[in-house]
């Protein structure tokens, strides 16, 4: 009997795991953005002394995980599982980071939704009694993503207004069966939504229906309303996707205009930093959660957050073959108090 299920897509954790520590490391451009006071470390150079952007991304992820574990006064051998992912082919950044850490490792691919996917699985593993301590992490790097998905850095191309800027950075959270919160209390796992968007430069539009579906489903399954949350925040819909979500979810009967924003809107000052629609990448939701959201939860300025990370599950090959972009969104409720 699946006693913990509530509704069609949500589980309510009976022993909610505590987010006992968090860490974030970001690149120089992110460190110049509005959330600069929240990050653990801001790099001066996005290569971080490495010889390739891929190696730099691995180092960023690995060091972020180490920092999160260190912030919890633990050592890697006390962690039972590592759930992590990134954007590169065959999630190599995560694999190489896990190679150094020697923690039993589940590599995940959910594009930019991976942070919440990792937290969902990590929380369920703890709640199910399979582990006491897990670490969940994701990373992305602007320059490694550009060369895989778009053009060489020095190529003089114009970016459309709908395009988003991949975050250079990583975030990691340590979950524990014991601790004083904040707790992960509900998990709403998304369904793929694909409305036939084929423009990889308009990911906000491709992912917004998935976020609408998951958020509406979360409210239906749990019986909560938008007012029950201090903050409802999506992963990386950015400015265009954010407005699409607000509009579409109003048609579903929910008004999110008072307490909704998007991590992709928070990271950069789009006008000053010339990031067009906003931020994206696995590192986007991960860095915002493990800096700004986590800190505000600890301070008590936020007590109940619905984090819905969004992912566009296309590849360069699928785009060249004119396939549409499947969108996904996974949600978790983070509570300071367990009811």
């Amino acid at each position: 009997m699946a006693l913990k299920r509530v509704g069609a897509q949500t589980v309510k954790l009976s022993n909610p795991p505590s987010m006992i520590s968090a860490a974030s490391i970001v690149g120089p451009k992110e460190g110049d953005g509005p959330l600069k006071d929240y990050y653990d470390l801001i790099l001066e150079d996005d290569l971080w002394g490495e010889e390739s952007f891929e190696k730099a991304e691995t180092k960023i992820q690995e060091e972020t995980i180490k920092l999160a574990i260190q912030n919890a006064d633990l050592s890697p051998n006390q962690i039972e599982y590592l759930f992590s992912g990134d954007l590169l082919n065959q999630i190599t950044s995560s694999g190489y980071a896990a190679r150094q850490l020697a923690i039993p490792y589940f590599g995940l691919y959910g594009a930019c939704s991976t942070m919440v996917k990792a937290l969902s699985l990590g929380a369920m593993v703890i709640d199910g009694g399979f582990a006491d301590r897990v670490v969940c992490a994701t990373s992305s790097h602007f320059s490694s993503a550009e060369r895989q998905f778009r053009f060489p850095l020095e190529y003089g191309a114009q970016r459309p207004f709908t395009s988003q800027w991949t975050v250079t950075g990583a975030g990691a959270t340590v979950l524990s069966s014991t601790g004083n919160g904040p707790y992960i209390t509900y998990i709403t796992t998304g369904r793929i939504q694909d409305y036939g968007i084929t423009d990889a430069n308009n990911m906000g539009a491709a992912m917004a229906p998935a976020a609408v579906d998951t958020i509406a489903r979360h409210f239906k399954d749990t019986g909560y309303n938008p007012e029950d949350y201090d903050l409802i925040i999506t992963g990386d819909l950015a400015s265009i996707g954010k407005n699409i979500l607000l509009d579409l979810i109003r048609k579903e009967g929910y008004d999110l205009s008072n307490n909704y924003t998007d991590c992709g809107v928070k990271i950069f000052d789009n006008i000053r930093q010339d990031t067009h629609a906003g931020a994206s990448g696995c590192g986007c939701a991960a860095a915002v959660l493990n800096s700004y959201i986590y800190e505000e939860l600890l301070k008590g300025n936020l007590n109940r957050v619905l984090l819905v990370a969004t992912g566009a599950l296309h590849s360069p090959t699928s785009i060249l073959q004119s396939e549409s972009i499947p969108g996904i969104a996974h949600g978790i409720t983070i509570d300071n108090m367990v009811l």
Binding site: F161, T162, Y195, G196, I197, A205, P209, I240, N243, I244
Partner: peptide
């Protein structure tokens, strides 16, 4: 429908 959504997105996408 997919068509309706794509039309809706086209209307909301900033033009170059």
């Amino acid at each position: 429908s997919n068509k309706e959504y794509q039309k809706y997105i086209e209307e909301r996408t900033p033009k170059p």
